[in-house]
């Protein structure tokens, strides 16, 4: 069969979903299905039970808290991220990035949880969530835990989730006072696969006080570039100092080569997109 015959269950609650995931070794959660169904079609994963969590209200909420942080349910779609006033109020950049993911059919189905849990290095949201210092809320039948986003992505198509665990929501703190975010991507074509992308969060108080700079498509998972971050801290928020900081990106990277770009080109471009992301974050460029 195109899709191997599988069992399909639509639980009525997260608890029921967790029970199903725990009691079936071959069970997998199905959210928007934009990645999982492709994986099944290509026969690279074996799943016996699809646990459809897409319509669980508990996973579809966006909460904006008084402190400005937001908690986004794992089954919130890209389109809902784009339209959410709660997201736009303090995290406009998330809405913008979500609005550029593929086409509207996919944005109507694909979810923030799926985008993270697949851990496809070309995905749009993981580098941004790392830059924004998100926390992943994970539950299992046995309890719950919070995973810092930087510990969540483990490798190609691999995350920190253990069997039976479910990502339930993503918590994104408010931007610290004086901080802004930036996002830049070099794509094969308009809104298509990324060759290299970068997300940044930079706090400025006369000088740059804090910087998180994330690069994607240069390693199996999005990575923070500590060298550039360190070079930024204490520097004046100027184009010159950002350029100098970006120049620390170099031989320490050994990006993959594929049909979308050579390793050397990716290394060169990492400097460019990281600089552009930071420039946007300090209000000196357009990003994207």
């Amino acid at each position: 069969m195109l899709l191997k015959s599988v069992e399909y269950v639509r639980p009525g609650s997260v608890d029921e979903a967790l029970h199903l995931l725990r009691s079936n070794a071959g069970a997998a959660p199905l959210a928007g299905g934009q990645s999982l169904s492709n994986i099944l079609k290509h026969r690279v994963a074996s799943v016996d039970v699809l646990v459809d969590i897409s319509s669980l209200d508990e996973l579809r909420e966006i909460q904006r808290r008084p402190d400005g942080s937001i908690e986004v349910g794992a089954c919130v779609t890209y389109d809902e991220l784009d339209r959410s006033l709660g997201v736009r109020a303090g995290h406009e950049i998330i809405a913008r990035v979500a609005s550029h993911i593929e086409d509207s059919q996919i944005r109507n189905r694909g979810t923030i949880g799926g985008n993270c849990c697949l851990s496809d290095p070309t995905n749009n949201l993981p580098p941004l969530l790392i830059a924004l210092d998100a926390t992943m809320h994970v539950r299992s039948a046995g309890g719950s835990r919070r995973v810092p986003v930087e510990e969540f992505f483990k490798g190609y198509f691999l995350t920190a989730l253990e069997p039976g665990e479910l990502l339930t929501s993503v918590e994104i703190p408010a931007l610290p006072a004086g901080a802004r975010a930036g996002y830049a991507s070099l794509n094969v074509a308009a809104d298509s696969k990324a060759i290299v992308r970068s997300a940044a969060r930079v706090k400025v108080n006369e000088v740059i006080e804090e910087a998180r700079v994330v690069l994607a498509r240069v390693a199996p998972v999005p990575i923070r570039h500590r060298g550039m971050e360190e070079a930024l801290v204490g520097a004046a928020p100027t184009a010159e100092s950002v350029r100098a900081a970006a120049d620390t990106i170099g031989e320490d990277l050994e990006p993959v080569a594929d049909s979308h770009g050579s390793s050397e080109y990716r290394r060169q471009m990492a400097r460019v997109v990281a600089r552009r992301a930071v420039l946007e974050a300090i209000g000196q460029g357009g990003g994207m």
């Binding site: 094969v188 074509a189 308009a190 809104d191 298509s192 696969k193 594929d258 049909s259 979308h260």
Partner: peptide, 11 residues
């Protein structure tokens, strides 16, 4: 189509 980007209306 993952590797072969056929031009779309956006392009």
């Amino acid at each position: 189509f993952y590797e072969y980007h056929a031009g779309t209306a956006l392009d």
